[in-house]
Design a protein around this nucleic acid. Structure first.
Lengths: 351, 351
DNA sequence: CCCGATTTGTCCTACGTTGTCAATTGCCGC
DNA sequence: GCGGCAATTGACAACGTAGGACAAATCGGG
């Protein structure tokens, strides 16, 4: 089983078809001034010889790899999946291919990352948070001539193309929903403080609280790093307290499901004993029981939009585009009025 | 904001350091026969000029892209995630990069796929099922000189390297568990018939049934294509029947969770009214409530092993390796004795 | 049959790096 | 200070494609 892979070049095709290499090149690049007869003959020869243009040589002379990177940190699996599926969706039928660049910690490895991207010879990258907010990375990308599109950045929006999302409004909406149900003993599980979304969502919660005339109590905030396990631990920590909250606002769905498990292990029924609200509309939020009240974040659509802008940038050199996306409150079954209120309502009705 | 990216070449570095381009090349490739003095001088010049080797030129002359593809079909998200994480885990610290190649339907597009891979200039690919079983693809890859490692193939094991998994045994184990609980009215939700795993698991179920002295009833088999929605529909179809089963064997966890939802919508309690057994040990199986009895399939480890063999193949030209992996039965909370049996036991104990 | 337009060919250079092989340098003992 | 041998260094041709400039061939129409 030796490996004498026959390498067919453009020269061979020319010889076989009885035309010059220049003509073969013209045919393969769809240049004008080629008769249909020759076109067909060349294509036939290419097929007969099983010719495939050498991508390396093309890339070398055209200075194009047609490779696009997707840079993301470790966050919840569903987020990454939606993101990646969005990029791939947009890439369907395009010449570009996707290289996946997972990063341990953007915060810590920021300086090395662009070196990686450069070594991968990428034409451009889609940056997920928190890389999309890392100014040093953006600067280095500009320096390296690598185009980029940013997913949901929060600052320096004048750099590159971005998909914009109002996390504050989304968080405010879901907090307002929980407050409107009558909850006042509300705890919060926040995400990774390295992500801007964590702070934006916190701000949205705070705004809703302020409108309802109450404040956020710092001692009722736990940090869960956006993971199931983190949410589980945070849930137990919050439910351990003597003044157990009647509702918990969780900054993503994976953590929310973790909180759910913690509540169940203590025999609490959801939503009767405890209301739980998530964020993201991840797949688990539909699979969970009861189905999770959450905020739909259009990750898939944002990924498509970002890839679209990146390609436009690469093809037409059109710079600086922005798209706006909306969060939507999805009220499902994991939130309900607090038990005290429910009892009072029952009494009121009964009387 | 024009873009005069200065391209520094090996020639510039050579000129700056006062040595030949060949010497620079030697320094960058850690070749022997370079004096330390020169080495340092060259490195200093390269740093000063911000030189980065041109990957295209290297690839052209070395005939190596250092790109590895991961080919998979649409199956459950968690499977793909585990797979991809495994490949990336093994690639950490390596020079290779991962290109993701999702395929609509291996069955339908088999002929075109290798063209895609070839156009991507891949050094090698990791093939997930069902691509790992597609003989035409394997033959074309051999023809194109693209190395491959196969995940859990079921035939022609002499082609390429493979990770092997005994799905029959895993399925037999979980079916035996359900039978041992006393169930006899057992329905099955199978996966995509294009996947060999679907048939292997069915065979395992059948073996367990045979040992227990009963057979598989064809009219109690639904097909769910490995998706949550498919499982949901299949669950409703099975539970609609007059002779409602007391247990359902489901060929993956995503579908199993769908069946769970269908059961809940009918007010059935799990596992009291209905036992459900999954397959894969996907993340949802731990998140679901009750936690799903399932079979752990070591996807992550298999992906690492496959990538490892692929790299070995690419680096050392060592061909034909195989690794064996085991399924493990995980009995959790979604399976219990059927109600009738439970009642009888209670009577027996009471009497 | 000649003119102008279209098609095709020739020739050359660029892209940036590596492999081959020859030339040069340095070092050793005498 | 000089052979002789090993360690360093350099010159030059690949690698396969793109594409510019321009000449040559071909075609169609009056």
């Amino acid at each position: 089983m030796s490996n004498p892979i026959k390498r067919t070049t453009i020269v061979d095709v020319g010889r076989h078809a009885g035309v010059s290499t220049k003509t073969v090149s013209r045919v393969f690049n769809d240049e004008p001034h080629v008769s249909d007869a020759v076109k067909q003959r060349v294509r036939a020869s290419a097929a007969a010889l099983n010719y495939h243009p050498n991508v390396f040589a093309q890339s070398l002379v055209r200075r194009r790899s047609h490779l696009i990177g997707l840079v993301y940190e470790k966050p919840s699996a569903s987020y990454v999946v939606d993101l990646q599926m969005g990029v791939l969706e947009r890439l369907k039928g395009e010449r570009y291919r996707l290289i996946v660049i997972p990063v341990q910690s953007v915060q810590e490895n920021g300086a090395e990352i662009v070196g990686l991207l450069r070594a991968a010879a990428l034409d451009g990258v889609v940056l997920a948070p928190p890389a999309s907010d890392h100014l040093q990375i953006l600067a280095q990308l500009d320096g390296a001539g690598i185009r980029y599109a940013r997913i949901a950045p929060s600052r320096q929006l004048d750099l590159g193309s971005s998909t914009l999302l109002d996390d504050v409004a989304g968080a405010q909406a879901i907090a307002a929903h929980v407050l409107a149900l009558g909850h006042r003993d509300i705890a919060i599980v926040r995400g990774d403080p390295d992500h801007a979304a964590t702070h934006a969502r916190m701000k949205g919660y705070a705004q809703a609280f302020a409108e309802a005339g109450c404040g956020v109590r710092d001692d009722r905030i736990e940090t869960g790093l956006f993971t199931f396990d983190g949410g589980y631990a945070a849930g137990h920590a919050l439910l351990d307290r003597a003044d157990r909250p009647s509702a918990i606002l969780v900054q993503n769905d994976e953590m929310a499901v973790g909180v759910m498990l913690a509540a169940r292990e203590r025999g609490l029924s959801i939503p009767d004993d405890l209301s739980i609200a998530g964020f993201d509309d991840a797949e688990v939020s539909r699979i969970a029981w009861p189905r999770l009240t959450t905020v739909r974040q259009p990750v898939f659509e944002m990924a498509i939009a970002a890839t679209d802008m990146l390609i436009a940038d690469l093809e037409d050199r059109k710079l600086q585009a922005h798209t706006h996306h909306d969060n939507t409150l999805l009220v499902r079954d994991s939130t309900a009025p607090p038990r005290a209120t429910a009892l009072r309502d029952a009494e009121t009705n009964g009387g």
